[in-house]
Simulated scan of single mutants.
Amino acid sequence: MAIQVAIDSALDMLGAISPKGYYIGVHIRVAAPLMTFNTYDRDWVDHYTQQAFALRDPTTAWGFSQVGSVRWSEMGIPDPFGIMDQAAQFGLRYGATVSFGEITSRTIGSIARDDREFTDEEINSAEKIIQRLHVFTEPSESLTTAQIEALQCIAAGDRHAAAAAKLGISESALKARLSSARRRLMARTTAEAIQRAKDFRLL
């Protein structure tokens, strides 16, 4: 719970300096982030998704090739699909991108506004906030045997009662194990916890 409060506080601070929103992919591994935070306008998000811009986005390319922060106007990354010009049409005229972490678990975040370039101070603040989010969301390197067994049962299709019986524990004990696994993996649902455990090769 304390971690979630810290994450929410960091996102509130980031939102305060990003009037046109932000997007953060946290701990990107094999092209998929552990979690994302996105407050961009829905019209832009829909357009971006429909055009499959994710793997062609200059901010993503910069984020995987550099660590630090940069204004969009200073990235120097080719944009043959005109993604940045299209973003400007949706109000994301000025922005900055932050990249942090090892290449095997990279966090990349962008902030945007429509009225002016971000100041150095604003970019430095965004960089510190995104670095904190990277640290707060560091994935667990292990699960307990009890947590693994509980997740394995649910992953195999067992309902709570059947899984509890299989493990020789009460249904409330099973739910407690699943809940603790979700917290450790920072997952909102058991299905998400199972997927993350698989991604981290814990299952």
Rank of each mutant, 00 (worst) to 15 (best):
M1G: 13
M1W: 06
M1C: 10
I3N: 05
I3V: 10
Q4F: 09
Q4R: 06
Q4V: 08
V5N: 09
A6E: 10
I7F: 01
I7S: 01
I7Q: 02
I7C: 03
D8N: 05
D8F: 01
S9T: 12
S9A: 14
A10M: 01
L11F: 03
L11G: 06
D12A: 13
D12S: 07
M13W: 00
M13P: 03
L14H: 02
L14Y: 03
L14C: 04
G15N: 11
G15P: 10
A16K: 09
I17V: 13
I17C: 10
I17D: 12
I17Q: 09
I17N: 11
I17F: 07
I17Y: 06
P19F: 05
P19M: 10
K20C: 11
K20S: 13
G21Q: 05
G21H: 04
G21N: 02
Y22D: 13
Y23R: 06
I24H: 04
I24V: 15
G25C: 06
G25Y: 01
H27A: 08
I28C: 11
A31I: 11
A31E: 15
A32W: 01
A32R: 07
A32C: 08
P33F: 08
P33K: 00
L34R: 02
L34S: 03
M35W: 00
M35K: 02
T36S: 15
F37I: 02
F37W: 08
T39L: 05
T39N: 04
T39Y: 02
D41P: 00
D41W: 05
D41M: 06
R42E: 11
R42T: 14
R42N: 10
R42Y: 07
D43F: 09
D43R: 08
W44H: 07
W44E: 10
W44G: 10
V45Q: 13
V45A: 15
H47R: 14
H47V: 11
H47Q: 11
Y48I: 11
Y48H: 15
Y48S: 15
Y48T: 09
Y48G: 12
